[in-house]
């Protein structure tokens, strides 16, 4: 299995917000989900995941709540706030612009 590549600074926030857009998840589940959805290409290391979660929470984009997991263990679940949803849309837009721009450069150069 190839080692999942490290992520660009800033894309972590985007991925976390996107992952949380369907349901509330705890940190472990977020990292697993990102890995899974990217077909094991992307992996968010704990060293950037948790600071990012705390930063997003302090910025008011996400909220947290202590809940029991299916296995009955208590964990900290994060969920998008209404402002977080808007922020996600903005970041998705700008990401699309960026990637299409990069794509254009790659195609034409």
């Amino acid at each position: 299995m190839p080692k999942p590549s490290d992520l660009l600074q800033g894309t972590v926030d985007l991925l976390i917000l996107r992952t949380l857009s369907r349901e509330a998840l705890h940190g472990w589940a977020i990292s697993k989900r990102i890995q899974q959805l990217s077909g094991d290409v992307l992996s968010v290391q704990q060293g950037s995941l948790y600071p990012a979660l705390h930063r997003l929470e302090q910025s008011g984009w996400i909220d947290s709540e202590w809940k029991d997991t299916e296995l009955g263990r208590s964990a900290k679940f994060y969920a998008l706030t209404p402002e977080g949803k808007q922020q996600l849309e903005k970041e998705v837009d700008s990401w699309k612009r960026l990637s299409s721009a990069v794509g254009l450069v790659l195609k034409k150069a």
């Binding site: 705890h26 704990q46 948790y50 263990r73 208590s74 900290k76």
Partner: peptide
């Protein structure tokens, strides 16, 4: 809570 959160991840 931070300690708990990291511990959960560890488990």
């Amino acid at each position: 809570q931070l300690g708990q959160e990291i511990l959960f991840h560890f488990e």
